[in-house]
Design a protein around this nucleic acid. Sequence first.
DNA 1: CGATTTGATTATATTATACAACAATTAACA
DNA 2: TGTTAATTGTTGTATAATATAATCAAATCG
Lengths: 176, 176
Amino acid sequence: MRTTRNVTKPKTASSGAESAAGTEREFATNGGNDISLGCLEGLLGYSLRRAQLAVFQDFLHCMKDFDLRPAQFSVLAIIGANPGLKQSRVSEALGINRANFVALLDELEQRKLARRAAAPGDRRSNALYLTPKGEVFLKEAYQHLIAQHERRLEEALGSTNKQLLLEQLGKLAALS
Amino acid sequence: MRTTRNVTKPKTASSGAESAAGTEREFATNGGNDISLGCLEGLLGYSLRRAQLAVFQDFLHCMKDFDLRPAQFSVLAIIGANPGLKQSRVSEALGINRANFVALLDELEQRKLARRAAAPGDRRSNALYLTPKGEVFLKEAYQHLIAQHERRLEEALGSTNKQLLLEQLGKLAALS
DNA sequence: CGATTTGATTATATTATACAACAATTAACA
DNA sequence: TGTTAATTGTTGTATAATATAATCAAATCG
């Protein structure tokens, strides 16, 4: 609670509040608006994370009308490109825990975008397919992503070769 | 439950399981081991995400002995580079919701790595500082990160210019 | 002074992610 | 062949990250 810490605070409050504001300004290393990133500056992980968040944010904004999150899109994309794949294979390909994949797929199935079918030769498995509606949906979502989202990213990169960037990211992803 | 869906399943199981296995193999686009990424292939967001996850994974592994997560490190780094900064400024600089920042800082304070101090001139604010222990801790963690984690990433990138990659990521992060 | 804003906090909800356990099924093998 | 081991989808549960609303104290401003 705030109250807990406030017990010790008023000691500074009653006496030297204004004077402290004057004197300590010289000592306080940062009273201004310039914030240094310190050692974060050169760390790839930090830049990577901030970039990923910004890109996902843009993705979400772009897919607002489709009500589609990145993970959902990735599932549709994999199923669309590899119809009949077993459930575990899809989750594995995306690095998604197969336990977590269940609810993800459940929602896509409820929205009639994907379906679980009996896998030939293995009654444990589900073979995954897009529904006709799902195929259309994926195609339209992808088109919109390319036209809006991806185009915006390429614009931001400017003259940078996007393909080169993808290769660099691929090298990093290969670490895991 | 599994049982729920199994009610409808045996229809395929009892009769045409093996025959379906024969006929559908010709239609099933993917019975093999090669999984296509489909439209994910060229999407920056996807590669970005996979790379970020791999890098964070490596970070966690590297910081195992320090028991430090990326977000925690980033907080220590910002405070270390900008002692006396107000709490809201630190969270803002890192793009962390100030409500979520409370617990994050609480833990660092409990571990005696950072401390909330009275902010001169504003009794609402907390001025954040590293403790002496926190300074040593950050320095050692950073050194270890550079020597192990970051070195590994640079190795993975090969001849690629890391600085160039950082710039590209910066352009993407600037979108938000 | 009163109204509004700001800073830190709590409570709460959602999403992502991880792991353990389980039942049904299949594979391995002695 | 029959018992054991491994796989598949699932549930339950736990943790971390993130978002929002509400609260309270303190500062600011008209």
